[in-house]
Amino acid sequence: MLSLPFSRRTDSSALTLGVLGVGNIGMVHLKSARAMADVEVVAAADPVLENRRRAERAGVARTYDDYATLLDAETLDAAVVALPPILHLEAVERAAAAGVDVFVEKPLARSTDEAEQLLETAESAGIAVGVDHTLRYQPDVAGVREEYEDGAAGHVPYASLVRLNDSPLGRPPVEDAPPSWPLDPDAAGGGSLLELGIHCFDVLYCLFGDLEVRSAAVGNTLELPVEDAATVLMYAPETETTITLHCGSYQWEELPEVNTRLRLEGVTGTISNADHLPDNFYADAAKEALTNVTSRVTDAEPTVFGPTFYLRAHYRALEDFCEAVRADERPPVDGELGLQTLELAESAYELAAETDDERGTPTLEVTR
């Protein structure tokens, strides 16, 4: 909790955490937290029975079918909000009423208006807001940032970032129906630009500072109610860097491989995230899985529970938030950064709409 004359945490006991929503990403956060020292996951909430059972099998003592009931019943230091974006504002309002700090899955909200209301509520209650912008934590992306800050490429006039996956439909053959909310513009707030572009805006801000959106286009490769492809042209005035971003939900992806390509074209050379990936994803995964087992046997601090870049990044993001809450400090990836990425996304949507209006461009359709 922030902005108070004293800390709520007055002893050295474990930080108590609740997880609101234990679908796919909620379970990632739950397992990450359970692997952390001095963090105790005391409860989880989800309306889906099987999700609650998974949380119980993962070691959570108490589960609820409604997150509001959990917040009323439990004494928490912090809560992970892993709910559909349509519920983020309400969940944070309820957490604020209970004096509970929040770690919110991205996007922070469906719009800048909602995000500003969310942050005003949090500030009035004196609670901390962290946002799960995990791409900056991926080791390959962190490697690019380290090289760039060390001056490995000199001045970088141009950079590009591509992030693709197959969410929410999944790679065929699909055994289970996908959740409905990611395809609902009202529930999600948007498509690929909010699902993937938000992460990318955050990474590019980390590298180059403030960003200006110059042009954008969104479209569909499939017949979906939200965009599954977006391209954004940006400029970073502080570093005089022109940047292209492309994100989409149309390309098959199979973890541990992640379809992310980040390149910085500098005066003295090129920096690429490809140079910071393991030579063999699967061998690296197997090696870390063995390390996990050995750590449990020897009581050493375990490697992150999931042996992939993707899961390690989520672990580090939540770990940073929990450490900030424990120290009564502002989270390193806070709500203001979450709002900033939403502002960039809204600018891109507005420019894309203007371009379509000017050109009379029809919505992209599937070619058969």
Rank of each mutant, 00 (worst) to 15 (best):
V267T: 15
T63V: 15
V131Q: 03
G18P: 05
Y67W: 08
V213S: 01
D356L: 01
I243D: 01
T361E: 12
Y282L: 14
E350V: 09
E265D: 15
V39C: 02
A152L: 01
S7N: 10
V129M: 11
V162N: 09
F309Q: 14
I243W: 04
E254L: 10
E346V: 10
T260A: 13
R326P: 03
P47D: 11
E301S: 06
A55N: 07
V325W: 00
P332W: 10
C247N: 11
R368L: 14
L364N: 12
V213P: 00
A61C: 05
G143P: 06
T121Y: 01
E223W: 02
R52Y: 07
K106R: 14
G266N: 07
T241R: 02
E358F: 05
V325L: 07
A353D: 14
P225S: 12
F201S: 04
G197H: 06
C247K: 00
T112H: 01
T363W: 11
S111H: 09
G269T: 06
A35Q: 03
V19R: 03
T121P: 01
N24Y: 14
E149Q: 15
L135I: 12
L70S: 04
G306Q: 08
D186I: 15
L17W: 01
L233N: 12
S295R: 13
V39E: 00
H155T: 14
